[in-house]
Design a binder for these strands. Structure first.
Lengths: 206, 206, 206, 206
DNA sequence: GATGAATGAGCCTTCATTCAT
DNA sequence: AATGAATGAAGGCTCATTCAT
């Protein structure tokens, strides 16, 4: 078998390996039930090596949870810029993005992790509110107001409650990570149905 | 000479005390970070006494999480029975019930607890799906279909996606337990706006 | 063999056992090299039990080091009170006390411990200076001044350097704990010779 | 383009650097609390490099503690050789040497180090007794006997207790490393007073 | 020789659980 | 039944030492 001792590797890669291992374990068992040694084993390194990259368990958790969100955000920003994109399309792209980048990825467990461990790590929660929630809501608010102005919303008041648009996404995350094994939820249909509830049907030829 | 030791009490009451203490602590800190001794202290009894009522920490947690939901369920059932109640009113009562019995109670932490610890306790998750989610969705499905039949829904397809109705409730729970401290969310308005989105306005001049 | 499990005992006795075990081990190996588990084993209890009596290793060490000095102090105080005792006799009693209570006891290791670990525990050092050194020097200063006034000192200036009287005691401690095994030192003779150097011989019949 | 890595240097110098760094750290924190990595950093080299010069931490400590004493010894030896030097002057030179070479140097921590770690390193203690203590006492014994023969001692019996002469030196070391911060001790005066107690004043009119 | 990432034994401390009283 | 002192398995973290580069 492969000699596995003292394998030196690119530190960046090493760190990524650890984060990967930590992610899998934290997602599966939560913060407290994850042993640092297990993280090390899963990353294929020795116990002590983890501590060369992260000062302690909490730092590992926080870096993990904080680090994964950014790639999503950057993509969302693009949605508002282009005013040519019809609001409904933009929101549907938002959902599609969410499905592709979160729901159908292992990242979906990450969100559950934040929900689960949030109160124990106020810094993480605050980060998520500031960086993800707040920005996501901002984008949605703009899109919804644009739609309202264009008379495309069934209920224009929704524009002041962008949380309503996020709610199905949250539901899909929770369902997929907790209940999916007991009962399937068609998230595509979930989002589509919601879009149809939110937006007036396009009047064929107006 | 105050005899304070070996205070005997109704075992049922004793058990309820323990569950109450456990609830407060589990809700606040999660399963792992809650110490059995703290539960005992909060319940006003000695460490060992907890074990006279529950075989171990896990059993305590499971009984706790399983036991708290039922009172809500029974009230919800009533909503469907009476066909005289208009669907929109029924759903709004559903939300009101949710707000009064969950959101504005310490019980709101319960759902977060299930989210947080769910994967570690598949039995709990399964129980929640079977007893709460499934039944709640069933009730909502009936109400929505009734509304659809009466032509009160903006988008009748919603009747097949009762999860959409639960989504705002979920959002309100998560918001209140995680983000409320950073940004206030008016849950009353959240639900009302959603109801207005879901249901057609009552035809003023019918 | 004796069943040793779950032996309950007077907490005061328990604590004394732990302090005794800790004393032996700290004295022998120093703070860092003493394992808490060894303390427990030597005290005949389980690892965790130590922590029922002391919050951590440092607290154990500090209580140990701080607790043993007082009995000596009280006896010394008596020496100055009685002005009928001739100064030379008083100082020789001081040395005798020191030999009986420290040098020929296991307590002699304690002093070495303070010298050894002092810099790591400023609180302990400060305590020793304030409670032991300072008071001892005060007593000696009074005795020496009394002797000087009575013309019994070979060099009256010694009265302003009571540290000189403590020096042989320190030497005896260090010798006995470090070098005695290589070369014997007659501490009785050490102190007597010093006394003869300090005090003029009693003029037989003057 | 500054080539700073793999700086080669005279191995002897390298070793001296390590010993210097080790001394500073051992003296300040003791054996256990000194990390090999800190020694390396302070010596300006990499962690592994220390092990090219010393097989392990203990060897480094022993060589350090053993090596520092010799320079003092050689100077002391000279004191006895020259019989023209009056004993009192010789002893006062001994103290002066001690002050200059030990007390006012970082070397003063060395003795405390031997005290502190002695029992863990019997070899070191034995070495100190054999090389330093024994020799120092030998020299003092000769000087004191010389003085006794010349009738210069207040108490000739002191000649058989040279430890008494070392005692104030010990006291000064311990005071300076432990208590100086709480209360100043004038070591010059300490030694002078002791000399005046040991030796008869020079007979002005003989 | 020199480096410093990697290793893993070791130790402090916590806490669920037990059981003598 | 109730108590809480006692137990000991478990886990986070450190650091002396090794070794691939």
């Amino acid at each position: 078998m492969a000699a596995k001792k003292r394998e030196k590797r690119d530190p960046q890669q090493r760190k990524a390996d650890i984060l990967g291992a930590a992610f899998a374990l934290f997602a599966e068992r939560g913060f407290a039930a994850t042993r640092m040694e297990d993280v090390a084993i899963r990353a294929g390194i020795a116990k002590g090596t983890v501590y060369l990259h992260f000062p302690d368990k909490e730092a590992l958790f926080i870096e993990l949870v904080s680090g994964i969100a950014s790639p999503i955000l950057s993509q969302i920003d693009g949605l508002v810029q282009n005013e040519a994109i019809p609001p409904r399309l933009a929101v549907s792209i938002f959902y599609a993005l969410f499905r592709r980048e979160v729901l159908e990825t292992e990242r979906r467990h990450l969100l559950r992790l934040v929900l689960a461990e949030g109160p124990m790590f106020p810094g993480v929660t605050e980060f998520y509110h500031r960086e993800i929630i707040s920005k996501g809501l901002g984008v949605l608010r703009i899109l919804l107001h644009r739609a309202a102005r264009r008379g495309e919303l069934r209920n224009p008041a929704v524009a002041e409650m962008p949380q309503l648009v996020i709610a199905p996404a949250l539901m899909s995350i929770i369902w997929s990570t907790l209940f999916e094994r007991y009962e399937h939820l068609d998230t595509q249909k979930l989002f589509d149905t919601f879009l149809d509830t939110l937006f007036l049907p396009e009047r064929a030829a107006q």
